[in-house]
């Protein structure tokens, strides 16, 4: 497996994403209980763990959907904890959603194009026709090709098949060319063949970026990830390369069980 020499990587550059003692409680219930994690520049990092372990909550804290109760989140040297989602996105972090979260009445093409506009600097531009923006058009076309939806470009996103919507979900996430990508269960609900396609797609689109993903499918995780963190009851009990995660006894007893042999 193609594993990066992690020690030297972390010495050379600061981590792309750095979590320090993140805590989150809903009311009196602690859900995230002091998570610290470094995701290195350019690595593919997976978070696994049992249901209710806090994986999705952690994603929501990083991406700004919720503010953490305490702790710091640093994205490429900038503090982003408790910023609004759009502000975090503008600083170079994009995420996908476990439950498909697209623009249902817009065409597939418009879905992607809306997602490239800010990063290309068009912001709240109201004096130029959006169809005349060549760079937006070119990037949108390129992403449609990557996610293999070119032939569906004019269909309203709401009528796509489930697998197509999942591909569009990833397309929207990568369209803004963010340096750090968070994918929340990208292959959930897919057939084996669809999941294989999705893995191939994720491999391509995460090239040159930092990827943090939550995934239940162990085949996908061990196939794709450079490093794996195991989140159990709001705490990370291990972070390591896949081969050592498989052998880790604490992980096996807490979560993996026989799946580690798969």
């Amino acid at each position: 497996m193609n594993v990066k020499p992690e020690a030297s990587a972390s010495e050379r550059t600061p981590p792309a994403l750095e979590l320090r003692d993140i805590r989150k409680s809903f009311g009196a219930t602690p859900v995230i209980r002091g998570v610290s994690l470094d995701v290195h520049e350019g690595e593919r990092h997976a978070i696994i763990g049992p249901n209710g372990g806090g994986k999705s909550t952690l994603f929501n804290l990083i991406s700004g959907r919720f503010a953490p109760t305490s702790g710091s989140i640093v994205l490429c040297g900038e503090k982003i904890a408790a910023l609004a989602p759009h502000e975090i996105n503008r600083r170079g972090l994009a995420r996908s959603f476990q439950i498909t979260n697209i623009f249902p009445r817009l065409s597939v093409y418009e879905n992607i194009r809306c997602s490239v506009l800010w990063s290309l600097g068009y912001k709240y531009c109201f004096w130029r026709g959006v169809d005349k923006l060549r760079d937006a058009r070119e990037r949108t076309d390129r992403i449609l090709e990557q996610i293999r939806l070119t032939t569906r470009r004019d269909a309203p996103a709401g009528v796509l098949t489930y697998a197509e919507q999942r591909a569009l979900e990833i397309g929207i996430t990568i369209a803004g060319d963010a340096r750090v990508i968070l994918l929340d269960e990208p292959t959930a609900g897919m057939s084996r063949a669809e999941a294989d396609n999705a893995v191939a797609l994720i491999r391509v689109v995460s090239q040159g970026r930092t990827l943090l993903m939550v995934e239940h499918d162990m085949g996908v995780v061990f196939n794709l990830a450079d490093r794996i963190s195991v989140l159990v009851y709001g705490e990370i009990i291990a972070t390591d390369i896949p081969s050592r995660i498989r052998r880790n006894e604490a992980v096996q007893s807490a979560y993996l069980g026989s799946a580690a042999d798969a």
Binding site: N101, I102, F103, L106, S115, I172
Partner: peptide, 16 residues
């Protein structure tokens, strides 16, 4: 249009 369809996602692609 995007905000009409899905304001949350519009925020996650960079728009206030």
């Amino acid at each position: 249009n995007a905000v009409r369809d899905n304001p949350e996602r519009a925020a996650f692609v960079g728009y206030n």
